[in-house]
Design a binder for these strands. Structure first.
Length: 262
DNA sequence: ATGGTAGATCGTCTA
C-alpha cells in the first residue's frame, strides 16, 4: 500500500487552520507532519481535519512557541516524544503507523543569529540538540522509520540561494552542516528528497522579510524527509509545493512531499 | 552594516 507523507512548518496552526485544510483537501497526503504549531495540544483545531478524514493525531505543544503534530488518515498504534537537549520545548513527537512505519517529526532549534556558542546560547542549544538526536539513533539502528521536519539546516550548496554568502549565516555554517551529517550518518538515514531529486537548487523556506520572495528567490532547504535504508528505496515522487508559499497569509515554509510504496 | 516581516500576546521574545 503506497502512502504519501508531507511535512510543513505551519507557523501557527490556529491562524492557518484553513490553509492546512486546503493542503489536506488538494493533496490528500496520508500523513501530514506540522511544526511550529504555536499552540497547546488541546487548542489545535482538529475538528476540520477530522472532517477531511484525518482522524488520528499525535502532538506535543506549548503556549506560543514550538509545537509539533502528526495528522494521519492511517491509525497510529504507538506514540512518544523526547525532550532532546532538555530544553523543555515541544520539538519532537513520534508515532508508529499501523503499517509498521515509525515517523519522527522534529522542529530543530533555529539557533539565533550569531553562529558562536560562546556568545549565543541558542546556537549551542541547536548543536546540543543535534548531538542528542545523533546519539539517540546511534547503535540501535532504526528500521522502517521516517524522520521529517524543520531541521533548520540547509546542508548542500544547492540547498541555498548563495552558498558563499551564507557560510556565516546560521542554517548553512560548516559546523551545523557537519552536525547534521553526523546525525544523519548515525541513524543510517537517507535524504529521500535529494535521493529523488539529486540535481538543482531546491528550497522549502523563503523569508518574510524579502520584498518579493518569489522574484528574489533567496530560499533555503530547511525542511527534510529522511528514511531508513530498508524503506528509502521505496520512496519516489518527492516534491516541494512552492505554490503554498504564495497562498493567502502564508507560512514562510512550503510543504515537502514523498510517497513510499510499502 | 543594517533592517527588513510575521506570530503570540499585549512588552517582548522568537524566527
Amino acid at each position: 500500500m503506497p502512502f504519501t507523507l508531507a511535512t510543513w512548518n505551519i507557523n501557527s496552526v490556529r491562524l492557518r487552520e484553513n490553509i492546512v485544510a486546503q493542503l489536506l483537501r488538494d493533496e490528500m497526503p496520508d500523513v501530514l507532519c506540522l511544526q511550529e504549531c504555536k499552540s497547546p495540544v488541546e487548542k489545535i483545531p482538529t475538528e476540520q481535519f477530522r472532517a477531511l478524514g484525518y482522524n488520528h493525531m499525535v502532538a506535543r505543544g506549548q503556549k506560543g512557541y514550538n509545537g509539533v503534530a502528526i495528522l494521519s488518515k492511517i491509525p497510529m498504534v504507538e506514540a512518544g516524544a523526547v525532550d532532546y537537549a532538555a530544553l523543555g520545548h515541544a520539538r519532537h513527537v513520534a508515532g508508529k503507523l499501523e503499517n509498521g512505519v515509525t515517523i519522527h517529526n522534529f522542529y530543530v532549534p533555529a539557533g539565533g543569529d550569531v553562529p558562536d556558542r560562546e556568545v549565543n546560547e541558542k546556537f549551542g542549544q541547536k548543536l546540543d540538540y543535534l548531538m542528542e538526536m545523533r546519539d539517540a539513533f546511534h547503535g540501535d539502528m532504526p528500521q522502517k522509520s521516517i524522520l521529517v521536519g524543520d531541521l533548520n539546516i540547509a546542508p548542500r550548496e544547492d540547498d541555498v540561494w548563495d552558498h558563499k554568502k551564507l557560510l556565516k549565516v546560521v542554517s548553512h555554517t560548516p559546523v551545523e552542516v557537519e552536525a547534521l551529517g553526523e546525525t544523519q550518518d548515525a541513524g543510517g538515514w537517507i535524504d529521500v528528497t535529494r535521493a529523488d531529486i539529486p540535481d538543482g537548487r531546491l528550497y522549502s523556506w523563503w523569508s518574510y522579510r524579502a520584498k518579493d520572495w518569489d522574484a528574489a528567490d533567496k530560499g533555503r532547504r530547511l525542511d527534510h524527509i529522511w528514511a531508513t535504508p530498508d524503506i528509502a528505496n521505496a520512496a519516489h515522487g518527492s516534491r516541494i509545493l512552492r505554490a503554498a508559499r504564495g497562498w493567502e497569509q502564508p507560512s514562510d515554509h512550503a510543504p515537502v512531499f514523498a510517497t513510499f510504496d510499502i
